[in-house]
Design a protein around this nucleic acid. Sequence first.
DNA 1: TGTAGCATGTAAGCCGTTACATGATTGA
DNA 2: TCAATCATGTAACGGCTTACATGCTACA
Lengths: 185, 185
Amino acid sequence: MHPRLSTTSYALLGLLVFDGATSTAGLTGYELKQRSDKTLAFYWVSPAMSQIYTELSRLHREELVAPVDARQGRRTTRRYRVTAPGRQALTDWLLLSEADFPVLKHPVALRLMMGHLLPVSKTREMLQAYVDRLAVRHTELQAVRESLGDDVAYRYPAMVAEWGMAYYDAEVDIVAALVRRLDDR
Amino acid sequence: MHPRLSTTSYALLGLLVFDGATSTAGLTGYELKQRSDKTLAFYWVSPAMSQIYTELSRLHREELVAPVDARQGRRTTRRYRVTAPGRQALTDWLLLSEADFPVLKHPVALRLMMGHLLPVSKTREMLQAYVDRLAVRHTELQAVRESLGDDVAYRYPAMVAEWGMAYYDAEVDIVAALVRRLDDR
DNA sequence: TGTAGCATGTAAGCCGTTACATGATTGA
DNA sequence: TCAATCATGTAACGGCTTACATGCTACA
């Protein structure tokens, strides 16, 4: 069988499956990067362009995706579609392996842990800046959610987007409470 | 100045600073791993043992920590303490650099996105398993929180632990709502 | 006496990033 | 015509993991 792929590889494969459902001619590496910026970035990682191309080459080598080259004027673009074995490999992965517990890399929490090294004002500023960025992210995610509409085809991505928004809301509440605690003493 | 360290390096330095506050003779790599399993694991990453030793060597090379070798019977252990420059380097990092936005690697959300490839029952099981693991984590974190007590020296780590618990609570609520949505239709 | 835990490291290798390199197309 | 965006890759390297290697100590 396939030499086990990285989770990021499966994630990209997943994005390509969605594209197949909408029956276009596939995605270029560039387009795949744009999709992952709008989806994977919120609950996984959005790989660098160079990584996207590397993964696409690997998936092609494993015959899980098929490239279609097209000439558009003077330029040649390469669009990838998921193959039947690719779709199967993804389904097998979902079915036969367990989801790991999430890993959170939270520099704000990490720095808060060392709050005793700084004046309280600096810590408060950091938390406030984080709340501001959460608001920005929330807006971005809301735009993604709205772009998905109520189409059943995007039922699951819509759920994930709403999960993300609810998470951002919860973070804002929690951090607001922390700021209040920082102040009263 | 110091060639910029990784965030993980600063995180470990931070743990050693706490140890300094309680005026022991420092920590061994092994002990540092235990501490990071109980703290960093919840909002950063708990590095592998081998990585701990590598970071400790680096921090020593940069003279941000100082080792003290001790003979305990036939065995020689090496305990590390933060140096004054080490403490300063950590403070400078906190003061002079911005906290990045958190990165969440959430395999459950990732897999949920691809829910259309699986029977709903499988997705429900995955979410339920996640809720169960959240409860376990919550219990672990609660134990950590209680071990910190109300000592002002641990005020900030206590806040971080409570943040973590509140986050787990929020996740449970959100996922429970998702499961209900999965069911009614 | 044997096993779990304490303790310290090296080697190989994966995953991913940044930097570099190149060029076409669109639209102001 | 110039800048932004589309488009595709390679090279160097950092950070981290797993596997390997070694040995002491406490205690059941």
